[in-house]
Amino acid sequence: MEDKIVEDIEQIDMSGLELPSFAIYKNPTDYPGKSVARLFEGDKPTNVVLIKKNVRELHSIFRDRTRLTFFPPLPGDSGNLVGVWM
């Protein structure tokens, strides 16, 4: 499934999702040199991604424009996972 890249969080319709979250990755293999927020539904990744130059920009979006809470990665998570906004 091809990724749907969005420019802004307001372009994402989450109304039908029961447990949306966003995993934040720094320099993932599919987007080298970028910082990516991938929308998850429960524990399943979707094809929706928000791409920015750095993690600070992504954190700013979620902190300032959503009611989500940030959780740091757990032991055993991928090395490029910065954390999850839920």
Rank of each mutant, 00 (worst) to 15 (best):
K34E: 01
K52C: 07
G83N: 08
L58I: 15
S78Y: 10
G42D: 01
I12S: 07
K4D: 07
G76M: 07
L39W: 04
E2T: 11
F71L: 08
D8M: 06
L58S: 06
V55K: 15
E18L: 08
V48L: 13
P72K: 07
K52M: 09
N27L: 09
K4M: 14
Y25A: 08
L19W: 12
V36E: 10
K52V: 09
I61R: 06
D43P: 03
A23H: 14
S35W: 07
A23W: 05
M1S: 10
S21K: 15
E41R: 12
D8E: 09
N54K: 10
Q11Y: 14
W85A: 02
N47M: 15
M14T: 09
T29V: 06
S21G: 10
L17Y: 13
L50N: 03
R65P: 00
A37E: 04
L68V: 02
G76Q: 05
N47W: 10
Y31S: 15
P73F: 00
P45N: 14
R67M: 05
K44C: 04
T66Y: 00
M86N: 03
L17V: 15
I5P: 07
K44L: 13
F22I: 14
G33F: 14
G79H: 09
V48E: 01
V6K: 13
L74W: 06
V36I: 05
K34T: 12
I12C: 03
P45K: 12
D3R: 11
G79E: 14
Y25E: 13
R63E: 00
T69S: 08
L81I: 09
V55N: 03
D13L: 06
E41N: 04
Y25L: 14
V82Y: 00
D30V: 09
R67W: 04
D3G: 03
V84K: 02
S35N: 01
T46G: 01
D8R: 10
Y31N: 06
W85D: 01
D64W: 05
N80T: 13
L39P: 01
D3I: 08
W85T: 08
E57L: 07
I9S: 02
T29I: 13
I9L: 03
Q11V: 11
S60H: 05
I12M: 15
K44T: 02
H59Q: 08
E7P: 11
E7G: 14
